[in-house]
Amino acid sequence: MPIQALPVNAAGSAARHRDEVRGLWLGLLGVVIFAITTPMTRLAVGDVGDPQLTPLFVTAGRAAVAGLLSALWLWVARAPRPQRHQLREFAITASGVVIGFPLFLALALREVAAIHAAVITGVLPLGTAVVAVLVLRQRPSRGFWICALAGCGLVLGYAALQGGGRLSLADGLLLIAVASGSVGYVYGARLSTAMRPEQVICWVLVGALPLTLPLTLWAAASVDFGAVRGGAWLGFGYVALFSMWLGFFAWYRGLALGGTVRVSQVQLLQPFVSMLAAVPLLGERLDSLTLAFALAVIATVFIGKRMPVRGAA
């Protein structure tokens, strides 16, 4: 009966709206967690003049800690094991988000400020879109490729200006980190269509334990723990517990509740949060040139993600 249908429809609409709002807030929480990763990683590894934990120890250690927590969580949740045909995608995801992105980011942050890294890695959402286009064999519009090239040109131009007309090794490492993260995000997203998203990151981390746990113990031999400050351990604890584990719980759940297209837009805030966090955490200074380039990069990401992309032919 029509009179009875209205309340049902209204209730369904209200429930969807609540899910969208929750999704946006969880997505924002995930973005804030990931954004603070950059200054916290810098805090953990220190710089050339005052090194703290080594980049390899931070990379392997954060994944090992998160992997052990993931194993416990999967056991409590009685999560089903991945299928054999999914192992290749799990391996690719791990190579990107467990090894590639954290390692190259940590190596670069020994050489450059966190604010500088935030501008370069600000193109990560657009890089992820490019990898998705290639992996899924989609046909993007000309405008999409123009935005992708413009974003790449902006980060290269910024790096060259900051480096006195040339790119530094650290800038190259940051670009490799962006490429690694993009690949890992895309393959992780593909796995998330077949199993619960939070289970994906946990199985990725557990699957990497045979590598990350021994590597952590080996890397520990080259760390002078007596010279490591408490702030470095704070940074390490953050990237292990939040960046490598809990951040994915919030982010993936937000995407599921609020919708990927809507929630993913909050990624545009990530470079700004990283830069703002670097000021009190590291004492870095945010100048007008850096802010201008950050705004320009975010603009290309914003426009590029709205360019039409057709499915595979």
Rank of each mutant, 00 (worst) to 15 (best):
V119T: 15
L175G: 05
R78E: 06
P55N: 14
L286A: 03
I99V: 14
P82C: 11
A296H: 05
L124M: 15
V45P: 00
G163E: 09
V239L: 08
A250P: 01
Q138I: 05
L175F: 14
V58Y: 03
I36Q: 04
R137I: 02
H85N: 13
L136P: 02
A66H: 06
L276K: 00
L29D: 01
V131W: 05
V65L: 15
L295N: 12
L257A: 08
Y187P: 03
V98M: 04
Q267Y: 11
R166T: 14
Q265M: 12
A256L: 09
T216P: 00
L68P: 00
L234G: 09
M1E: 13
A118T: 00
V119W: 07
L234H: 07
R139D: 07
A10F: 05
A60Q: 01
T193L: 13
G226S: 09
L6R: 14
F57Q: 01
G122H: 09
V223K: 01
A114T: 01
V178T: 11
K305H: 12
A117Y: 02
M275K: 03
L209K: 11
Q83H: 10
L213I: 04
L276G: 00
V58F: 00
A132P: 03
I201C: 05
G30F: 03
N9I: 02
V119H: 07
V239C: 10
V309D: 08
Q52N: 08
A219I: 01
G226I: 10
W245T: 04
V223D: 05
R81D: 07
I120S: 05
G61H: 05
L241A: 09
R88E: 07
R62Y: 06
L24V: 14
Q267K: 06
A159G: 08
T38H: 02
R285K: 11
P125E: 13
A227L: 08
A79N: 03
L149R: 06
W245V: 01
R310D: 14
Q270I: 04
I146E: 05
Y187H: 15
R137F: 00
G247W: 02
G311S: 08
L234R: 01
S243R: 06
G157R: 10
R110F: 09
G230P: 01
G96L: 03
R18K: 11
V178E: 10
A208E: 03
P125W: 12
C202V: 11
A106Q: 04
R253S: 13
T300N: 02
E198P: 02
A296N: 05
P271K: 10
M244A: 15
W25E: 07
I3V: 12
S288R: 08
G27E: 04
A94V: 03
V65N: 06
V119F: 10
A117G: 07
I176F: 08
G157P: 05
L87Y: 15
G207A: 05
A94I: 00
F248P: 00
S180T: 11
P210F: 09
A91P: 03
L215A: 14
D47Y: 08
V273Q: 03
G247F: 07
W203N: 09
